[in-house]
Amino acid sequence: MKKEDFLNLKAWFKDYVRSFHSEDTLILQNVRLKEEHTSRVCENSSRIAISEKLDEEDYYLAVTIALLHDIGRFEQISKYKTFHDSESENHALLGVRVLRSAGVLSFLSKKEQDIIFTAIENHNLQKIPDGLDGKTLLHSKLVRDADKVDIYKVLTDFYLIKAISPNPALEHGLPDDEKYSAHLIQDIFNNKISSIKGVRNCNDMNLTRLTWLFDLNFIETFRLVKERGYIEKMIATFPQNSETNAVHVHLNKYLDSMLDNA
């Protein structure tokens, strides 16, 4: 891909998003939220791509995937008024359908289109499927990292205002109490990525998100997490006790070990 290709897609993206602007406050709030999220994921992807010394073609492929990774979110929030796939539909697959229907990538080679579609399909999975070629795997990993880092920002920003400015599209309808599940704490100590199946409350959901740290792929991603203090911000949402303090220490040790071995 070339810079001009990316800029043309960026212009299309802006027009597409504008078509979802609504007088419905919930929809407009979340369209803007995802538009801002997309912009930051592009910035994260750019930093990671530069740190990995990707050539021009792969650099613009990476930021294009970042630009389009959540394209399904706009139809999702407009149609279902939620971002929860379990209550609506898989936003990644929806996004691929949107792009195919619009034909906006038809000027690209089949190989480039396949990489973009596959990376989008994989960006919200718990685990990337086996069997991908090296270039597709690279771009699948890169957008997942860039996305996860900004989801931490979206969530930690939301926790600060949740009590006075709730957003049903971001909430899972889970109890917000002081409890949390022991097996999720153990997953962290085992450096294991947790499943969201069976989470019981908000603390459980946030513990699963902390295990995303074990699914990050690039040193620059770890730098971004540390630079922006996301572990501390996430830990601050839990009851403060010896167990959550131990989780905090463990995650920081893991993060520092990844950076020290760079």
Score class of each variant (00 low, 15 high):
G72E: 02
V63T: 06
I151P: 03
K141M: 08
Y254M: 14
L9K: 07
S140W: 04
K253E: 15
Q29Y: 11
P129Y: 05
Y16H: 12
P239C: 09
S39L: 14
R97S: 10
L138E: 00
G95E: 02
E52Q: 13
D70C: 06
D256I: 11
I188F: 01
D150C: 08
E171R: 01
S45R: 00
S257Y: 01
L224S: 02
S45W: 02
A246L: 13
I115M: 04
A169G: 05
P168V: 02
M234N: 06
S194Y: 01
V96M: 02
A49Q: 03
T244G: 12
A236K: 09
E232D: 15
E87D: 13
N44Q: 04
S101Q: 14
A246D: 14
F214G: 07
K81A: 07
G131Y: 05
F117K: 05
E178V: 10
I116R: 03
N217Q: 04
L216H: 08
N8T: 10
K197R: 13
T64Y: 02
F218T: 00
H183D: 15
L207E: 02
S242Q: 10
A163C: 08
I50G: 03
L68H: 00
R209Q: 12
D187L: 05
F189L: 14
D177Y: 06
K141L: 04
H250A: 14
S78G: 12
F158E: 14
T208G: 09
K81Y: 07
L108D: 01
R223Q: 07
T82E: 09
L224D: 01
S194V: 07
I235G: 08
N90W: 04
K253S: 10
G229H: 06
S194G: 05
E121N: 05
K2A: 12
D260I: 09
K135G: 03
L67F: 00
T208W: 03
K141R: 15
E112V: 08
Y230R: 10
I71D: 00
E52R: 11
V31A: 01
F74V: 09
D15F: 00
N245A: 15
E243L: 14
E57A: 15
L210K: 06
R223N: 10
L216N: 05
I193D: 00
D204S: 04
I219A: 13
Y59S: 05
H37Y: 10
D133S: 04
I128Y: 06
K10G: 06
A163K: 11
D70G: 05
E171V: 02
E87P: 05
